[in-house]
Design a protein around this nucleic acid. Sequence first.
RNA 1: UCCGGUGUAGCUCAGUUGGUCAGAGCGCCUGACUGUUAAUCAGGAUGUCGGGAGUUCAAAUCUCUCCACCGGAGCCA
Length: 432
Amino acid sequence: MSVAFTEVRHLKSRVGEEVALRGWVRNVRTSKTRFIDLRDGSGFVQCVVGAAEADPASYETAGQLTQECAIALTGLVQTHPKTGEPEILVKTLQLLAGSVDFPITPKDHGIEFLMENRTLWLRSKRQWAIIRIRHTISKAIRDFFDEDGFTLLDAPILTPSACEGTSTLFSTDYFHEGVAFLSQSGQLYQEPGVPAFGKTYCFGPTFRAEKSKTRRHLTEFWMVEPEMAFAGLEDVMQLGERMVKFILARVLTDRVEELKILERDVAPLEAALNLGFARMSYTESVAKLKELGSDINWGEDFGNDDETILMNAMDRPLWVHRFPKSFKAFYMEYDRENPDLAMGADLLAPEGYGEVIGGGERAIDMQYLLDQIKHHGLDQKDYEWYLDVRRFGGVQHAGFGMGLERAVAWICKLPHVRETIPYPRMMGTLRP
RNA sequence: UCCGGUGUAGCUCAGUUGGUCAGAGCGCCUGACUGUUAAUCAGGAUGUCGGGAGUUCAAAUCUCUCCACCGGAGCCA
């Protein structure tokens, strides 16, 4: 006999009806009446097992449930007398699978312990909320570019050379080639897509072998990288702003429950959604930072604390544009009005979060690019295919990359990106 | 890689003039309790004090060393 099981997320519309549920026991509180916190992946619900209402065997079983055992039950959907949320008045209850000594108890745990038990940690309410928001952001990104006429152009993960020549890369054996590197960016592979498709993007994992241990770094992280033909710096900033607002609107609409679980104050997110993003040139931002007490000098890149200082003072995301060319990638276009500046822009998230987007206009002048390649110590041979973008109809084009985990961290207001991805990879963290 | 910190029960932690310092709370087990929601209350079991070496009559405590992790820096998304 097959039973139609109801998902917890649908219970709101089933009040007064009898339903069958199955899921995992988060916690049990026993008094004469027994209370089970049930989770089925789609949501959470309290199930009440009363001596009068439940059948005797089920009532007995309810007293012996352990944390994270799996159960199936039937009962009446009613409204919680205090919270107004749907709850189940249980009639029958059956143990499906036992669970002994689940390590993550309903009390506080240290981050080391939780990271070691990441697979089990994912069952917790907070992690559930974060991963669901990540999912929604990810989906929103794809929907945004899809609706905007971009073509998905998947970039390779195994690459022959250090694309940007800046970061430390992971390497692996690769047949006769000897060695291959894990991609640190799909951008160079997007640019050749521009003459083919006009507007492209890639969205996948990227890898950096930097030995950095901060709240903003993973060795494996997801990045979305759009690229547009006939576009410049202004277009990058407009596209990025529209995309971020699209994401925010989606999360604020579809993930209300999850934001509540995280106790996320949505006012700053609503502000970011409704206000125009701020803009500041690099030169202006350095002056602002000095005002705020930073010891930064013109010509230096922002330190981690510089971004934090700057963004604690902002009520909305900020575009910082036109950086000194010296610390930007070789492919960055220079400013015709000031050749020392690169036509790049970074989007910094408010509330102390820093860079989530980095992008800009790509250099199209062949001789300039060749000089840049030389200047950065790169081998021209490795970039002939990239230079072809300029040789054959090389028009102005631009794009950006957004780190998914940093966006998730900001939107969820998390202290560290390690919770924004199901299985974080960091220096010193390779398992589970 | 550098700087700083931590490591004691399954978990979170307390525990130095070196000498009843092997402890608490939670979790777990037993029982009580008419709706609880990190339920509560009573009772019970639980240890390579991160590893190794050293000082000492005596080390969780002091020294050296190694390891692991946390926080920060640089670099970046």
